[in-house]
Design a protein around this nucleic acid. Structure first.
Length: 854
RNA sequence: GCGGACGUGGCGGAAUGGUAGACGCAGCGGACUUAAAAUCCGCUUGGGCAUCCCAGUGCGGGUUCGAGUCCCGCCGUCCGCACCA
């Protein structure tokens, strides 16, 4: 063996060997137990960033480990290839989104290969392939036939300059993020998926996802937002009915006014006859949408002059248009109970409306005044006629029962979850396979005509969706009547693409989206790994698609991802020239720089030099302030390039760094010193492997034990994704081997060390295995352990006096209580600590400790 | 405001209610070398600077023979949601 391990030639050689042997190709016909390991596929932005490296390294270690354990592993990779950045590039650089995307894919694939990931590239897919999106169109039509797809008018953020719809996060202070134009609310006919049909199922399903982070399940639960209450109708003074929804029917006797949203038909009707009302409604609509504005937003209302008759008291309650009532939740109208709801309280205080107490701690407190705020808590009902004295829960049931009996209201369950709008007025996405015909209406494209392919010749020189103004593409004959008609020019939200890619990985026939039997063999994904930023949308949509496809008989799985792991970010120190303050816009989230604070004040790690007397800018020698450790981002220049790290230290070193030290769910601080340490450890292992001697004789029982304990512990740690702990174990075994004298045991330990390191540092492992083992280590089995060796025969026991450690004893495992007690009392240190005091009580935990209580 | 997570050496972090600080990084001392790099050995929570003793896991209480771990109350940091009736 050479003196040093040289990744610059070894890495590529082994990567080629794995490719040529198709080591990581998953065999659909295999009789082995199966394991589907999946990481969230990347958007092809052009370059892999360090977060990808962390994500994919974790999955790779697990996939390689599972292979060694005898599983048939499916570990695929693909590209979430549709989306806006490609169109932005087209507008800025004049490149076609397709060629831009494919070039990026090629670059990133090469980068992934250089990291040595054990991926089945034969199943690679890009969502912009017509093969893929054509099948997606077929699924979309299936869902349409099943009634799970519909069209409705919906308000969107419309950028009048760019002629496009903006997502909420693209609207900054009411202006388009790109054009800076004031964004308008526009009503467009949009496609929707009926995710609300699955609200209850998706909520229930969370209960089965034991191996998902509690945090993610909670976020989804909140997002679905189930609430139970009562919907009922007030009769208005104009004779109309006004439906309201409340979760607190128990407080109905405390209702002192009624409020409707600005967009509510009642408000609209009032506005038609009143300029004042009209202007108030417009103020509400213009109301800011940013978090800060909402927080400080004053409760505002407009008295319509109408009244609503209270169903029990017959009292006439004033009806207001209120800015805090939302049209798209419940019925867009509420009964307001100021005493027991803070918003209603604020409103009532402002407009001098009665604040009534109908819930109190006890009957004696029925007259207790409010102390400046609403009381939303539990208690018993007071001042409430027939429900007086009931608990809140009892009263809810009683009021609902009475309303239902009398026929003016009913118990109702509400969800915060809304249907999923999937229309995007863009080019670079999956065309929605429908045709608009003047005679026949909206007609699905016949399946045999799929895929509806995107036209290649598109023009991005003017704003707006190029599909809309394409000369020929949208003009087709109606499939039903044959008359001239037009294609739908909207494309699908890219979250649709990522809602089923894990199915297509497992099965990709030419003639249908996937084969049901093959899916049943691979799914659910055993371990899914990705960023927490997808906790809600992607993961909820994927769960929804899976359930929807199951409902229409395409699938047999309910939940796509059995176990989910959300990894932390990779962070780095920030550097900036001394004296340049952090701009206001950088506070909080803002990833953009404000106008008066140039981005150039941030320095990249390469631009600074760390010396004993501080940190300085290399070019100028000026002092540098070391800022907070934050997520790597281009704007703060605290990024490192994975390619450069690989070029300098090799793939195994960066992989090892990704796994070391920090628990995988937490943030990982990148440091130059850290990666250097990893590079040194690669060489240290190489030296250890070089010392393997098949002919060595002799037994080293302690090392044998350490070896098998390490193998067993690393297996447990990898399965729990506790890579940092596995890494620590490996360091320990490496040290033990270095300290040991040559022996057959030592050689066996070296061999075992190589094998447990192999999933983490596959290139180094292959290079060493070439002389130590047979074949490729990628095909080797995880080492067997001798269960008898795992158990220590000697244990060190703590001896405490009054709970304080005074001595330790090394004894045979299983030593009797009485003997331990005697040994403890015989200790000089113990006697000194006792100082003649009488031992009143002795606690002995066998193999652990003796505690003498004086 | 609501919900959640987390506070352990200079840093990242280990610790089924049972020897706190494993392992790594950084630092210090030494060996090797003409020298450096690399490598190897040792030390590294604070204090008294002695085999040893005292204190110590954000702060204050509590349960327990024994608490980083369990309970109660604070403080701080981070994340998510946000007028959802």
């Amino acid at each position: 063996m050479n003196e040093r391990f040289d990744p610059s030639q070894a890495d590529e050689r082994w990567q080629r060997a794995w490719d040529e042997r198709e080591c990581f190709r998953a065999d659909d016909a295999s009789s082995k137990p199966r394991s589907y390991v999946l990481e969230m596929f990347p958007y092809p932005s052009g370059r892999i960033h360090i977060g990808h490296v962390r994500n994919y390294t974790m999955g790779d270690v697990l996939a390689r480990y599972k292979r060694m354990k005898g599983f048939e592993v499916l570990h695929p990779m693909g590209w979430d290839a549709f989306g806006m950045p490609a169109e932005n590039a087209a507008m800025e650089k004049g490149v076609h989104p397709g060629s831009w995307t494919r070039e990026n894919i090629a670059n990133m694939k090469a980068q992934l290969k250089r990291l040595g990931f054990a991926l089945d590239w034969s199943r690679e897919l890009a969502t912009c392939d017509a093969d893929y999106y054509g099948q997606e169109q077929a699924l979309f039509l299936d869902l349409y036939e099943a009634g799970l797809v519909y069209r409705k008018e919906s308000a969107v953020n419309w950028d009048p300059v760019d002629q496009t719809v903006l997502a909420n996060e693209q609207v900054i202070d009411g202006r388009g993020w790109r054009s800076g134009a004031l964004v308008e609310k526009r009503k467009l006919s949009q496609w929707f998926l009926k995710i609300t049909d699955f609200a209850e199922e998706l909520l229930d399903g969370l209960g089965t996802l034991d191996d998902w982070p509690e945090k993610v399940r909670l976020m989804q639960e909140n997002w679905i937002g189930k609430s139970q209450g009562m919907q009922f109708a007030f009769t208005l003074s104009n004779g109309e009915k006004l439906e309201v929804y409340t979760t607190r029917p128990d407080t109905i006797f405390g209702a002192s006014f009624v409020a409707v949203a600005a967009d509510h038909p009642v408000a609209q009707a009032v506005a038609e006859n009143s300029a004042e009302a009209q202007s108030f409604v417009e103020t509400c609509r213009a109301g800011g949408t940013t978090a800060a504005e909402l927080e400080t937003a004053e409760k505002l209302g407009f008295d319509t002059g109408l009244t609503a008759r209270h169903p029990f008291t017959g009292e006439d309650l004033p009806v207001y248009i209120a800015n805090f009532v939302l049209m798209d939740y419940g019925t867009g109208a509420i009964m307001a109970v100021p005493g027991h709801d803070q918003r209603d309280f604020d409103f009532a205080a402002k407009y001098g409306l009665p604040i009534l107490r109908v819930v109190a701690a006890s009957a004696e407190d029925a007259g207790k005044p409010f102390e400046g705020e609403a009381e939303a808590g539990d208690g018993i009902c007071v001042n409430s006629d027939f429900i007086d004295g009931m608990s809140v829960a009892e009263a809810k049931a009683a009021v609902i029962a009475r309303a239902e009996r009398e026929g003016w209201g009913e118990g109702k369950t509400q969800y915060r979850l809304r249907d999923w709008g999937v229309s995007r007025q863009r080019y670079w996405g999956t065309p929605i396979p429908f045709i608009h015909c003047d005679g026949c209406g909206v007609v699905p494209v016949p399946k045999e005509q799929l895929p509806v392919e995107l036209p290649e010749d598109v023009d991005f020189s003017t704003p707006g969706n190029p599909l809309l103004r394409h000369a020929t593409w949208k003009h087709v004959d109606c499939p039903k009547c044959g008359k001239p008609a037009t294609r739908e020019t909207d494309t699908l939200d890219t979250f649709v693409d990522s809602s089923w890619y894990f199915l297509r990985f497992a099965s990709q026939p030419d003639d249908k989206p996937f084969d049901r039997e093959e899916i049943a063999r691979w799914l659910p994904v055993e371990q899914y790994i990705g960023g927490i930023e997808h906790a809600i949308l992607h993961l909820l949509y994927a769960r929804f698609w899976t359930r929807a496809l199951k409902r229409i008989g395409k699938l047999d799985v309910a939940e796509p991802f059995a176990s989910l792991f959300t990894q932390g970010m990779v962070t780095h120190e920030t550097y900036r020239r001394a004296g340049t303050n952090e701009p206001a816009a950088m506070d909080g989230e803002g990833d953009f720089d404000s106008d008066n604070e140039p981005a150039s004040k941030w320095l990249s790690p390469e631009e600074v030099e760390k010396r004993a007397d501080g940190v300085f800018e290399k070019a100028t020698g000026l002092p540098v302030e070391v800022g907070r450790v934050v997520k790597m981002s281009k704007s703060k220049k605290n990024v490192v390039d994975p390619d450069q790290i690989v070029a300098t230290y090799g793939a195994d070193a960066i992989r090892w760094f990704m796994l070391s030290d920090s628990p995988p769910e937490r943030d990982l601080p990148w440091s130059e010193a850290g990666i250097e340490g990893c590079g040194r450890f690669v060489q240290r292992l190489w030296r250890i492997f070089s010392q393997f001697d098949a002919a060595a004789q002799g037994e080293d029982k302690a090392l044998d034990r350490k070896r098998d304990q390490t193998v067993a512990a690393v297996a447990v740690d990898i399965e729990a994704l506790s890579f940092n702990k596995a890494v620590a174990r490996i360091y320990e075994l490496a040290s033990a081997i270095e300290k040991a004298e040559p022996s057959a045991s030592r050689s066996a330990a070296i061999r075992a060390l190589l094998l447990v390191v192999a999933p983490m540092m596959p290139h180094l492992a292959e290079e060493a295995w070439a002389t130590i083992g047979r074949g490729l280590v990628a095909d080797a089995a995880w080492p067997q352990v001798d269960a008898a060796l795992l158990v220590e025969d000697e244990v060190t026991i703590a001896v405490q006096v009054k709970g304080k450690l005074r001595d330790t004893l090394t004894v045979a495992k299983g030593t009797a209580k009485e003997e331990l007690e005697a040994l403890a009392l015989a200790s000089d240190k113990v006697q000194r600590a006792l100082d003649g005091a009488e031992v009143k009580k002795v606690i002995v935990v066998p193999d652990r400790l003796v505690n003498l209580v004086a």
